[in-house]
Each structure stands twice: as C-alpha cells, then as structure tokens.
C-alpha cells in the first residue's frame, strides 16, 4: 500500500469508529448500520495489501470495536450480533485479501508465461516498428542475418499522420504532401520487405501495416495499441543514439516500449550516422 492508500484506510477506520462511538445508545438501528460499516476499511485494506493486511485490519477493527461489547447494555441478541460482526470482519479480511493475492498471482503468471519465446524462434510472430531512418534498414539487415531462414512471421508497422494541414497554408498542399510521403514510404517499406524475404523468411509471412494517426498522439501509443490487438511474440525496433537533451525534447520510442510493452522487446542500437533522426 502506498502512503495515500494508508492515509485513506486510517481515515476510514477512525472515521467509522469515532462516529460509532458517539451514537446515542437508543439509536439501535444506527448501531447496526455502523457495525457493518467497519467492513469497508477492512475490505479496502485487504484489496490493496492482500490476505495478511486484511486479517491484520480485521484484528485492528475488532480491538477498536471491542468497547461496544461493554458499553451497550443491550439485549443478548445485540451482543450476539456484535459477535457475528466480529466474525464477519475476519471472514471479509481473509477472503477479500486471498482474492487479491490470487488475482495478483494470475497476472504475474500470465506475464511470465508470455516471456517464454520458442528457443529456435520458429513460429514466432514479430512486430517490426519502422521509422524512416537508415537505422531501420540496418535493423532489418541485422535481423535477417540472425533470424533469416526460419518459419516466422513479421509485420512491418508504419505509423503516419494523415492530417498535415497544420503544417501548410491550405489544405491542398497538405494533402499533396501526405500522398507524396505515402508513396515514398511505400517504396521504403517494400525495400525492407524484400530484404527480409531475401533473408529466407517466407514471403507470405512478411506483412506491411500502415497505421494512421490524427492529432497529437505519441507513436508509441499506436505501437502499444497494435501489440494489444495483434497476437505478437516479440517487438523489434531501432534505438537511435540520443543525448539526454534529445531524449527530453523528442522522446524515445524504445525506452517507452521497454517500460510498457508486455512482450519481449528487441531494440537494435545504431551508430550516430545510422541514427540520423527520423522525421
């Protein structure tokens, strides 16, 4: 649990306890209601910290609740209700906490299972993000040399902006620019595709995918979306050499993807010449 969650839990625990403490004895139904409200902080803590935390929260709430056994000189039924409430505290803490622990395990398991890539690379489905720099060509060459001749599938992903009107005085030259860029990129992608086919990857397994962006969206968002939608085993991309200032200014696609992609990421690092920045 982080600091904020701990503070919320403490506020809830003491909030319920203090309000309950000051309810006049005659308001029986309010007492019953507040008895149930003790469950809220217990469930909250269990949900964020697991079984141990849940049980600990239940014990703490029981101690806080204890004075009510002695203060309320009420019927036997009411005391039985108090005992039932205490049991409920512990059941809640235990089960909600266990649920949280097991779901966390499932997620970790899933992530670990995903990391197991067939050792030969056979049957792998690879997403190859292309920017229009010479480094993409170098990366394709490098990849072909290592993985060529295998039965793998590669999708070449190209992300482009379909609305460039804000870079031009009017719509016409903007559309012209987009279409010219499209033609140049198509030729570039074909070249890369041929390189991979020449390295022995089956022709029908090398695909080209163009993804259009409108508005200001980081390229890495689009790659992450594609990873989510497609069933890929590995992400391949080029890592341009950047200074700290460049990284600050322009961002860095591989760094973001290394942080956020849920599958293995293979980044091919370039020399400064190859890294001549993508546009």
């Amino acid at each position: 649990m982080n600091r904020k969650q701990i503070s919320i839990a403490i506020i809830m625990m003491f909030g319920v306890a203090v309000f309950h403490f000051f309810i006049p004895r005659d308001f029986l139904s309010l007492h019953i209601l507040f008895r149930l409200l003790y469950l809220v902080p217990i469930a909250y803590i269990a949900l964020y910290s697991g079984r141990k935390g849940g049980v600990l929260a239940a014990i703490t709430m029981t101690i806080i609740f204890l004075p009510h056994f002695f203060m309320d000189r009420t019927t036997q039924d009411f005391t039985a209700g108090n005992i039932a409430a205490v049991i409920l505290f512990h059941i809640t803490g235990f089960f909600v906490g266990s649920f949280r622990d097991s779901s966390e395990r499932v997620v970790i398991n899933q992530q670990q299972q995903h990391v197991v890539v067939p050792s030969t690379g056979e049957g792998c489905n690879i997403l190859f993000y292309i920017d229009n720099s010479p480094l993409s060509i170098a990366s394709a060459e490098w990849f072909g040399a290592y993985f060529g001749g295998r039965d793998i599938a590669v999708t070449l992903l190209w992300v482009y902006n379909e609305d460039e009107s804000e870079k031009f005085a009017s719509q016409e030259p903007a559309d012209e620019y987009v279409s010219q860029q499209g033609n140049e990129t198509a030729a570039f992608l074909d070249e890369l595709r041929d390189m991979l086919i020449d390295s022995g990857i089956p022709r029908e397994s090398v695909l080209i995918k163009n993804v259009a962006v409108t508005g200001k969206v980081p390229v890495s968002d689009k790659i992450l979306e594609e990873l989510k939608d497609g069933n890929y085993d590995l992400l391949l991309l080029s890592k341009h050499q950047q200074t700290k200032a460049q990284e600050f200014l322009f961002g860095d696609v591989p760094i973001r993807l290394l942080r956020e992609a849920s599958i293995p990421v293979l980044s091919v690092k370039g020399t400064p010449e190859e890294s001549s920045s993508p546009s």
């Binding site: 902006n161 980081p218 200014l249 322009f250 973001r256």
Partner: peptide, 15 residues
C-alpha cells in the same frame, strides 16, 4: 504555433 514531435508531441509545451 505548431511543431511536430511524433513521439513526444507535447514536448515543447512541457519545456
């Protein structure tokens, strides 16, 4: 004003 940083589209605003 406009600028185009494909990976860090809000970079200049942050600077």
């Amino acid at each position: 004003y406009n600028y185009d940083f494909p990976e860090n589209p809000f970079g200049m605003d942050l600077i």
